[in-house]
Nucleic acid binder design. Sequence first.
DNA 1: GATCAACTCTGCGATAAACGCAGTGTGCCG
DNA 2: CGGCACACTGCGTTTATCGCAGAGTTGATC
Lengths: 167, 167
Amino acid sequence: MSAIASTDPGGKNRGVTADLALDEINKQIIEHLQRDGRMSYATLAKTIGLSEAAVRQRVQRLLDGGLMQIVAVTDPLTLGFARQAMVGLKVNGDLRAIADEIAAIPEVDYVVICAGGFDLLVELVCTDDEHLLDLLNEKVRTIKGVAVCETFMYLKLAKQTYAWGTR
Amino acid sequence: MSAIASTDPGGKNRGVTADLALDEINKQIIEHLQRDGRMSYATLAKTIGLSEAAVRQRVQRLLDGGLMQIVAVTDPLTLGFARQAMVGLKVNGDLRAIADEIAAIPEVDYVVICAGGFDLLVELVCTDDEHLLDLLNEKVRTIKGVAVCETFMYLKLAKQTYAWGTR
DNA sequence: GATCAACTCTGCGATAAACGCAGTGTGCCG
DNA sequence: CGGCACACTGCGTTTATCGCAGAGTTGATC
């Protein structure tokens, strides 16, 4: 459900998503929609071997439960609309709390808690360098517990795919 | 087009995408589909104020040209199907060539060329730790020019959103 | 400035998909 | 065994998608 943290800020779906069974059929549905998010319920049903209504129900449940979202993705850099950067943070204190605080910043589109040289990896989407500077200076580095803040400015996105399957 | 590097390995669309104009209407289309990738052409047309056929053409062009993709996205970690990691690389030699080489690895879902302490940031999706070890040991670190390879294992995805607008 | 080609839009009929709902089968628990 | 919850099917209705012909615009060429 973390993928849907943005659409479920309160995390009230945490119990719901945990209850949702991810059986073989749901995995197949996800795998197909990872390749083409607009695939019709009808063809999806045919390839999987289920009725159209059943597939429709399952997709709706996956979406409602926050296990999956179907969205348009673009490369902001190529479109010329953004200065993007990854920020590596070392922090003191409650990792989850700080992660949530950073996640609340609109310009932040990706936050992951990790092990290694950084505690947190944060991806930022800004309009320009000044915007990026503002963000780092006033929104990120001012958060209590942030000890180190290293910025990696994006020069070119070389690959971005979402069809990693379901294993 | 970089976002579609995975679906356009030869890069033959590079000219095409550069030609595609991203006017206000296309921006509106993208913004709506960033929120709901399955929104119907009809309602999209109504909210934008264009005929259904015109919107359909534009969406098709955006998809064909590789400026946008509509996909289902999930959080592999929460679904319990993957060990995910970000890898920071310092390399010698042609950045683009090495980026392309890494992008060709199926388990790699994200490659970005950047400035700062790392030249390349690479996101990996693996089934388990052994899979991750195999990848790092045999696919990533064996690439000529890779000097430093630092791995950040994901513990929890705290935010992931795609509706950053079009500015 | 007329002509032509390229492009995008509109309108519409035919086809296909989505939706809603009633009904059926199955597993589970008291 | 009976009752309940759940997921699936089948089908009629509504809605959307698709394909295409035609109209309007733009820009280049002669």
